[in-house]
Design a protein around this nucleic acid. Structure first.
Lengths: 161, 161
DNA sequence: TTAGCGAGTTGGAAAATCAAACCCACTGAC
DNA sequence: GTCAGTGGGTTTGATTTTCCAACTCGCTAA
């Protein structure tokens, strides 16, 4: 995924160029959950070890993970998410929500418990929804209008340009 | 991406097995924006035409797109998003938001205008945020606690099992 | 009649993926 | 001490994908 044709300047494409390769998002899922070591990542994501090596290198270079030594002699590192890495969690949550709704029967593989922001006692099940911070409303497709800022954008494609 | 090792039962992995291949999400971006024809998709996503062919077939099989004839003689089809396909928009929005924040300088490639749900006059810029439908609050990483329901889950990985 | 388009298909080279084996530095058990 | 075991990779070679360009096919418009 390194580089795409970059047919359009687009933040979706740019983000996917970074984390859209096979296993990258699963690695981020794992480190967000606290599994930060090479063997855990290999096992939990199913990535071949060599592929995992190159993914980790790339995610570290991109600033989504950082290597933290947890042992010298022998040198051993774990891979912790940076702030930028953790900020991909919304992507993971929306992917999970979609899969739960469309791919899963009645028994979801996992459920996230959501504690109230006030640190309240009883939590409830997380039901992730994308809303607009500006107005607080849930985002519906029909309420959106794209406004291209960079050249290369034509909403219905070059055919209608 | 067809099948992964399926190291863990996980809706994120399952969803990515469907739409995680190169270009798939860009195709969904395009059809969500209204560019639904083969050549538009090829141009706007940058996907090689043969790859695009296999992606479209897969997305149609999976029920994310449907082929709609817009001409017989010669037979010509466009690829429209189904409801399930449109429901991936939250994923696209969160990817875009991340890219805008972390990859882009001051000039974002595109901005989405968000009309009020009441069909109000003046729109504002969309600022997508993931919230919890249950309590209405913005989701913060520290408020989440994973609860495995299927076997194969160990939060810190097999090492700590 | 010829040019052109939209929507693919085909062929062959280049790149990425995969599984398994290998390597190295150490640890702990005998 | 020695010897198996572990964590964290690297190497190897076979298999898949990807990529790009060229080609096809059915039709339309000049």
């Amino acid at each position: 995924m390194r580089r795409m044709k970059e047919a359009r300047p687009c933040s979706i494409a740019n983000t996917l160029a970074l984390v859209g390769e096979k296993y990258s998002l699963l690695v981020l899922r794992e480190v967000s959950l606290g599994a930060t070591r090479f063997d855990q990542l290999a096992r939990n994501t199913g990535a071949p070890r060599d592929v995992l090596t190159t993914r980790l290198k790339r995610l570290v270079e991109a600033g989504l993970l950082r290597k933290v030594a947890y042992s010298e002699r022998p040198p051993r590192f774990e891979y912790r998410p940076t702030r930028a890495g953790l900020e991909l969690e919304p992507v993971l949550l929306t992917l999970m929500a979609w899969g739960d709704r469309h791919l899963t029967g009645d028994d979801r593989p996992m459920v996230l418990e959501h504690a109230g922001g006030d640190g309240s006692l009883g939590g409830h099940e997380l039901v992730p929804v994308v809303t607009c911070a500006e107005c607080g409303e849930e985002v519906r497709h029909d309420d959106l209008t794209p406004h291209p800022l960079a050249p290369g954008w034509t909403v219905t494609g070059p055919a209608t340009a």
